[in-house]
Amino acid sequence: MMIQTGIDLIEVARIAKSMQKQRFMQHVFSPQEQEMFEKRGKNPQTVAVNFAAKEALSKALGTGIRGFALNEISLLRDEFGKPYFQLSGKILEIVQKNRYKLSVSVTHTKEYASAVVVCYGGIEP
């Protein structure tokens, strides 16, 4: 079984500034995420941690942000607050084609947001 990890750390202030641009929000975040942000009062820490998770996922897959759009990756929360990915478009095709399973963990402080993604499984060589 293949196991790969990705990690990202970002300054919340950088994302808070970018949040002021509607184009940024639409380009990076899915409609489901944007709805979640609204419900959570557009908290910059939440937005930053979602951004970090997308970056960490691209690192775990080893692709960087190529071949898919960031807004095809949604980081949502279950009823207990546990984060999970909901994928669509090209990124979903990549994950399904390679039979990957994903695990994500996120955290933030007032100043920083971080995410770790583990990509495991995959096609046996």
Rank of each mutant, 00 (worst) to 15 (best):
L75Q: 11
K42S: 00
F24Q: 07
R66C: 02
S114I: 10
M25K: 11
G67D: 10
L92M: 02
N43Q: 12
L87F: 12
D8P: 13
I3Q: 13
L61A: 09
L9G: 04
F37V: 01
V116H: 07
I65V: 15
F37C: 04
L70P: 02
T109D: 03
F37L: 13
K54M: 03
S114Y: 00
L70E: 05
Q34P: 06
M2R: 14
K110F: 01
Q86Y: 04
A69R: 14
V117S: 06
K54N: 00
F37T: 03
G64M: 11
V95M: 11
L57D: 06
R99H: 14
E72M: 08
R40V: 00
G81F: 13
S18Y: 01
M19Y: 07
S74F: 11
K59S: 12
Q86I: 01
K97N: 11
A48R: 02
A69W: 04
A16Y: 01
T107M: 09
K39F: 00
H27D: 13
G62R: 07
L9N: 07
V104N: 02
I15K: 11
R99Q: 14
G64V: 07
Q34S: 03
V47P: 02
I10V: 15
L61R: 07
H108K: 09
R77N: 15
K110N: 13
Q26E: 15
V95Y: 06
K90M: 02
L75W: 08
L102W: 04
E55C: 10
Q34C: 09
F85R: 05
A60C: 10
A60T: 12
V12N: 03
S58C: 08
L75T: 11
E79Q: 14
I91C: 03
